[in-house]
């Protein structure tokens, strides 16, 4: 007897896949996910190292004159940073003194872990980065991620040698923030990134007495209520404010830095426990 109808094998296989999908315990799924992530991590990391090498060789082509000029600019910057470090040291002592007098809990301190960005998934479906450091380097889930221009996001998933960062432009990213110069908390939430545009966010619960034209600073910064983020880091710039439908508060749009879309290096802030902090200060 010959073959009479279409083969049933693909259908049987599909049903099998569905059964496995429904019956697999979540623990096994997350183990498989971690295995596949670890499997491709070396390849992604190697590609990132190659890119670094490429950058290194392109920098090698610069003339000595450029190097001398860069060194001079860097020396000036270092001098400015040295002054601000001395000022910060004096302020820190003052804060510690006030904490003792007022019996306040100490301000949180952080260890900075710098990591290279190996992959960017920024589109209509997800807004995340993959970095080249993971749990083996002390990265923890939920830690704050920052760069020179302000906040980047927070650590979403941690693997042994890599971690994913949820960007501040992600609609699932939400933190407490304030407008510079005012301490009233405002809710910030990420929004979609439009093609050929900069990443955006939105703010809610803006008190009705704010007038867009009258605000001295249009910089939105992290609040002391922002959880893992230290106070005062830049989130973005307020673009507009309008009354909400309920009439009680205002809402507005926030323009985030375009640099978020092309970051190559970020810093992860790992909170230092008070005992560790004392050791750090001692050393």
């Amino acid at each position: 007897m010959g073959k009479t109808g279409p083969s049933l094998k693909p259908l049987v296989l599909l049903v099998l896949v569905l059964l496995v999908w429904w019956l697999t315990p979540p623990l096994l799924r997350s183990f498989t996910q971690a295995s596949f992530q670890e499997l491709q991590a070396p390849a992604i990391s190697a590609a990132s190292h190659l890119k670094d090498l490429q950058l290194y060789w392109s920098l090698r082509t610069h003339s000595k004159q450029t190097l001398i000029e860069s060194g001079r600019d860097l020396a000036r910057l270092n001098a400015a940073y040295e002054l601000s470090r001395q000022r910060e040291s004096a302020l820190r002592k003052e804060v510690e003194h006030l904490e003792k007098i007022l019996d306040l809990p100490p301000l949180p301190e952080y260890e900075y872990i710098v990591a290279r960005v190996t992959r960017r998934d920024i589109n209509q479906w997800w807004q995340q980065l993959t970095i080249r450091k993971g749990s083996n380097d002390g990265i923890t889930k939920g830690a704050a991620v920052v760069y020179a221009g302000g906040i980047v996001g927070r650590i979403q998933d941690v693997f042994s040698h890599s971690a994913t960062v949820q960007l501040a432009s992600s609609p699932s990213f939400r933190i407490a923030s304030t407008i510079e110069g005012d301490r009233r908390p405002i809710t910030y939430q990420g929004e979609a990134t439009a093609p050929f545009g900069s990443p955006n966010g939105k703010i809610n619960n803006v008190p009705p007495d704010y007038q867009f034209k009258n605000i001295e600073s249009k910089r939105l910064i992290t609040s002391h209520l922002g959880g893992v983020f230290p106070e005062g880091l830049t989130i973005g710039t307020i673009e507009s404010l309008s009354p909400r439908a309920d009439g009680l508060f205002q809402e507005g749009t926030i323009s985030l830095s375009q640099d978020l879309m092309s970051l190559s290096e970020v810093a992860i802030l790992i909170p230092i426990e008070p005992e560790d902090s004392a050791q750090h200060n001692g050393s």
Binding site: R29, Q33, Q40, W126, Q128, T130, D157, Q166
Partner: peptide, 8 residues
């Protein structure tokens, strides 16, 4: 593997 949708 690296995405936020449920694995699989």
């Amino acid at each position: 593997a690296p995405l936020i949708i449920p694995f699989g």
